[in-house]
Simulated scan of single mutants.
Amino acid sequence: MPNEFAPEVLAAFAELERAGFVQGDATAQPLDAARADTRRFQAFLNGDPVPLREVEEVTIAGGLRLRLYHPDSPAPRPALLHVHGGGFAFGTIDTLDRWKREIARDAGVTVVGLEYALSPENTYPTALEQVLAALRWLREGAASYGIDSARLAVSGDSAGGNLALAALLRLRDAGEPLPRCGAIIYGMLSAEHDSPSHRAFGGGEYGLSTAKLDWFWSQYLGPTPREDSGAAPLRADLHGLPPLLLLAAALDPLLDDTLKLAPRLTEAGVPHTLRVIEGVHHGFIAWTRLLPQARAAREAVVESLRRHLG
């Protein structure tokens, strides 16, 4: 298994080190301090805001806060709900702000972010229920915001990939209309950590570690068993899902979650495309300001949205 960072990644790491930005680590810091470090790190990656026609916020039933990124394209527009990562315990509505703006601009869709409830303060299934609430609002109540409820997509990265996939499964099981397509980006899909990618990349030298993932799962699940297929969707029946784009980082302990998901989708008859980006680490899609690999992954998402949403 190749284990070398791309030169551009090493240069970006050096830039971050010079600027004094580090990712928070709840296994080594108080949670509030770790979250504050992560917010500063993410703000640096976002940089100056990418211009859009309009960015507005909406609070829907239950007090769930959404942010709508509107591009310069005529309404009604397709919409993408993106669920941010952070191990269910980190991240805010500002996470991936740059990426969401770039997707809106390049794909001509309204991108929607949400401020879902974090663990350990809120355990499974609170965040999942909020993602479902956001999808249902987009389907039933967003027309006045220029959104075409018949042309929806959902995506998520890391823990957000878990929530996006689990939400699709919940909608399917409830017999509700599904989004037209989805993107699962280095999804945190299983709490089982005895895999080649965990053994190769889980020691911490590539950023995300098996120890951090174990902590994240413990905080998120609370009393829910780790093998519960609602919380760990890699264990679920995957039939009946819409077309999915799978993106993975080659230097990521979670790589095997995506590599295991692809053949299970094939077995279930779900159309999908798998791309593994070489030389990059978990979380790399936030680095579009610094990495050509992140920009290439962004373009893969844009192409998928154009193909499926029109």
Rank of each mutant, 00 (worst) to 15 (best):
F201V: 00
G279T: 12
Q293K: 02
A294S: 14
V280G: 00
P225E: 01
A191T: 08
T258D: 07
P177D: 15
R289N: 14
G182M: 09
S195H: 12
L246M: 04
L171V: 01
D214C: 12
A183T: 10
A211K: 14
D194I: 09
V276P: 05
E227Y: 13
V270F: 10
P179N: 13
A166P: 01
W287M: 11
H281G: 10
G161H: 01
M188F: 14
G240E: 09
Q293W: 02
E176G: 01
E192N: 15
R170F: 02
P263G: 06
H282Y: 09
T266I: 06
S195I: 14
A236I: 01
L171C: 08
P233D: 03
Q219E: 15
T273N: 14
L234D: 06
E192H: 13
A166C: 06
P253A: 12
L221V: 05
D252F: 06
A211P: 05
T210R: 11
A174N: 12
L213M: 15
P271L: 08
G203V: 06
A296W: 07
G161N: 00
P242L: 02
K212E: 14
G182K: 01
A294T: 01
R199F: 12
L189G: 11
T210V: 14
R226W: 04
G160E: 01
E192G: 09
G222H: 06
G175F: 11
N162F: 07
E267H: 15
L244S: 05
G207M: 00
T258Q: 07
F216A: 11
E267L: 15
R298A: 02
P292H: 08
A250W: 06
P225C: 09
R172C: 07
F216P: 03
H272F: 10
Q293R: 04
L241C: 03
R235K: 10
N162T: 04
V280W: 03
L208I: 01
G202I: 09
A286H: 13
D257C: 08
V280H: 00
L251K: 01
L274W: 09
A200Q: 15
A268R: 09
V270L: 13
D252W: 06
R264G: 10
R170A: 15
G202C: 10
A167D: 03
I185W: 05
G161E: 00
P177V: 08
V280A: 04
T224D: 02
L291M: 05
R295V: 03
L165A: 04
E227P: 01
P177L: 10
S197V: 12
H282K: 06
G161P: 04
G222N: 06
A231S: 12
